[in-house]
Write a protein that binds this DNA or RNA. Structure first.
Length: 570
RNA sequence: CGGGACGUAGCGCAGCUUGGCAGCGCGCCUGCUUUGGGAGCAGGAGGUCGCGGGUUCAAAUCCCGCCGUCCCGACCA
């Protein structure tokens, strides 16, 4: 491609709305342009990178027997009503957009489990046709509450999504592992350091699932990582290695009686800690009590150590003001666990509070707290679990080593769905080996392709611009002719070399513009093509071309007649 | 959806406090000179000052409403 003809405009300054490096550089280098908040056009250079990323994914999925197809972006809303997920629209769990059209109401597809389930079940009738894994590259729509960071969080995104269909759970797990391994190879080829972590399944559902995390300073997620045993989990799903103290064991036996204290106007933990500070109390001596509804909608009290943030399981939600009115035993701001079971409130607790105490906690009376509360004497716990947020330095739940918190971007998410969709979508059955009817065991696998552009750019750039790994670069070679306007020899040599490289199958971007050398160098650095070739009058007189690596800065001179062989071979 | 900031030429910004010719840098066009790390000189084009209303002789500037954009939070591939 001749740069004089390429639809690209480089910017010396980034737009004010670009915050992170990948966003600034992709815009400055002319790869993308914003159309609306969270909605971007891919200009020719950006589209080439997108296609390169897709090709890597395509090759690795095809290599393990997956088949590409393309499903509609527009879904009849009836499909979503059948799966029950239409009820999640408008909620935070599954922000979706709908379109009223002549044919009825359609959903701008946020994900494709419903469509793929009815599509495949219409074609597959026998266990003999499985295992089967299909995938597509398709635009997904999310009614994103807050688009940000350029391509990292958008309202319209390009995703590679795969779906496996198997005869039973064991076969599904095998298919899952196959795609999982292919994903690892994809990230390897993209030059990304990825860590698969245990995760929450969210709106997609299912049992086992993993997120593929790329550590990054601009990440919006954190995962917990144990260096000694390899345990890795999203903080949303991570647990702490805190053993429950056996009943009656450890702790003070000299605990005194429970004493109530008048603590007006101190509903928050920090306020109360300050009140009791003169008695030597710290936040760790408090029970933090949260009134919630569990996933089944039962009123529940969650207890965590006062120095910890609570982390609720998915599907649980905090009380709102009206909920306190209907549960008078829980006094907002002064909640305590004592006697709650008598009022039909279930009490669950983080293992971090399993020592007897004494504890300081709310007295279930307005403006009152109590000291000296002892576990199993003054309050009871119905179930133990991990309800506190994990922080760096906590014990690993598997080996007890210290875990570390890593900031990261979620690049992909894989799920073992089992029967979640096949048992609710009509007709999703096949004839099993025994002649009976059976339900598909499914898996689904999503990778944000447009997001990956940003992730790769985040990991591969410097202060001068982008530096693409060869696997995803829009062009392999950036050929710059210096001073061709005043030296016909340079122009002719560059034209000839350009033609030879194309003939040899090398993807080359040829800067044939009549601009100063400084501009050409600066643009070459900004665009980030892996190899830069420079032809100038000085080198040409000696029969050499300058070769330079964008990533390493390494430079050498190549004899003019050996350039094509060197680049085509490498 | 809560909190904050911003909106003036393609991009970056000044002007607003104290109402009075719409500006600067980069980019773009023409010509000449220049040419190894974002050249120089000369000339030129380009604006619904986000939108609507109000105050005023007069509004980019003051007031009200709306829209948009970004940041923090909540939520998510």
């Amino acid at each position: 491609m001749r740069m004089s003809r390429l639809l690209v405009r480089t910017l010396r300054e980034a737009p004010a709305d670009a915050e992170v490096a990948s966003h600034q550089l992709l815009v400055r280098a002319g790869y993308i342009r914003r159309l609306a908040s969270g909605v971007y056009t891919f200009l020719p250079l950006g589209l080439r990178v997108l296609h390169r990323v897709e090709q890597v994914i395509r090759e690795e999925l095809d290599a393990v027997g997956c088949q590409e197809l393309l499903m509609p972006a527009l879904h009849p809303i009836e499909l979503w009503e059948q799966s029950g997920r239409a009820a999640m629209f408008g909620s935070d769990a599954l922000p979706a957009m709908t379109v009223e059209a002549r044919g009825g109401t359609f959903v701008l597809g946020p994900t494709h489990e419903e469509v793929v389930t009815v599509t495949v079940s219409a074609e597959v009738e026998s266990y003999r046709q499985m295992p089967l894994t299909v995938y597509q590259f398709q635009v997904k729509f999310r009614d994103e509450a807050r688009p940000r960071f350029g391509l990292l969080r958008t309202r319209e995104l390009i995703m590679a999504d795969a779906y496996s269909f198997d005869v039973d759970k064991e076969a599904m797990q095998s298919s899952y592992q196959t795609v999982f391994d292919a994903y690892l190879r994809i990230f390897e080829r993209l030059g990304l350091h990825v860590t698969p972590v245990e995760a929450e399944s969210g709106a997609i559902g299912g049992d086992v699932n993993h997120e593929f995390m790329v550590p990054s300073a601009v990440g919006e997620d954190h995962f917990v990582s144990c260096a000694s045993c390899g345990y890795a989990a999203n903080v949303e799903a991570a647990t702490r290695g805190v053993a429950r103290v056996a009943a009656g064991g450890g702790g003070p036996t000299s605990a005194g009686p429970v004493v109530e204290h008048h603590t007006p106007g101190r509903p928050g933990i920090t306020d109360v800690v300050a009140y009791f500070a003169d008695q030597g109390a710290t936040a760790a001596d408090f029970l933090k009590s949260l009134a919630v509804f569990d996933a089944d909608g039962r009123p529940t009290l969650v207890l965590v150590p006062g120095d910890r943030e609570a982390r609720l399981p998915s599907g649980w939600r905090l009380f709102e003001d009206a909920d306190f009115d209907s549960n008078p035993s829980l006094v907002k701001g002064y909640i305590g666990p004592s006697g709650q079971q008598e009022h039909g409130i279930r009490v669950v607790a983080d293992t971090g509070i399993s020592r007897p105490g004494p504890w300081i906690t709310g007295a279930n009376r307005p403006d009152h707290h109590m000291t000296g509360a002892v576990l199993d004497r003054d309050f009871n716990v119905d179930a133990w679990g991990s309800f506190a947020e994990v922080v760096s330095g906590d014990a690993c739940p598997h080996c007890g080593g210290a875990v570390e918190l890593v900031r990261s971007v979620e690049a992909a998410h894989t799920f073992q769905l089992g029967h979640k969709y096949s048992e609710v979508m009509p007709g999703s059955t096949f004839v099993a080996a025994d002649g009976g009817e059976a339900t598909f065991s499914m898996g689904c696998y999503g990778m944000g392709v447009s997001r990956l552009l940003a992730v790769v750019a985040e990991e591969h750039h410097d202060e001068r611009g982008l530096a693409w790994p060869p696997e995803v670069a829009p062009y392999q070679v950036h050929l710059a002719a210096l001073g061709a306007g005043r030296s016909p020899e340079v122009g002719a040599a560059a034209d000839q070399l350009y033609g030879q490289l194309i003939a040899a199958g090398v993807e080359v971007l040829y800067d044939d513009r009549d601009v100063s050398p400084g501009v050409k160098f600066a643009d070459a650095d900004l665009l980030g093509t892996p190899v830069r070739l420079v032809i100038g009058a000085k080198g040409l007189a000696r029969g050499v071309v300058e070769w330079r690596s964008r990533a390493t800065g390494e430079e050498r001179e190549l004899p003019m007649d050996g350039v094509v062989a060197t680049l085509a071979g490498g």
